[in-house]
């Protein structure tokens, strides 16, 4: 049908500022194919910022959690796996550098 409504693929666009930089999500665009999405992505989202590489992925090839799952990223206290949980060590080292521990008094 000539006047049938047109549908488009949505491509999500990511860009790396440099070889060391992570690919950061920019935005999305409508395109027919990856090569077309790439040439459109550059000027739509990288007109001013520095870039080294641009990535495009069809949105329906991306799997993501939604707002309903956001809660699962909340956590209880897990400072045992963070350096924050070991701050007291600094004070210990300061003391023992001044006054080394000896075997005295230990049995």
């Amino acid at each position: 049908m000539a006047d049938e409504r047109l549908e488009y693929h949505i491509y999500e666009v990511f860009a790396q500022e440099s070889q060391m930089a992570p690919a950061v999500h920019q935005f999305s665009l409508l395109a027919s194919s990856p090569d077309m999405a790439l040439i459109l992505a550059k000027e739509n989202f990288l007109r001013r910022q520095k870039a080294w590489s641009v990535w495009v992925v069809r949105r329906d090839h991306i799997h993501r959690t939604g707002p309903a799952e956001a809660e699962m990223f909340d956590r209880m206290d897990k400072t045992y796996r963070e350096t924050e949980g070991y701050r007291y060590l600094k004070e210990k080292w300061r003391r023992y550098k001044q006054e080394p521990l000896t075997a005295q008094g230990m049995t």
Binding site: L6, E7, Y8, H9, L30, A31, S32
Partner: peptide, 11 residues
């Protein structure tokens, strides 16, 4: 230019 958008569509 609808014909061009057809080229860009999923058709």
């Amino acid at each position: 230019n609808r014909w061009v958008r057809e080229v860009l569509s999923t058709r």
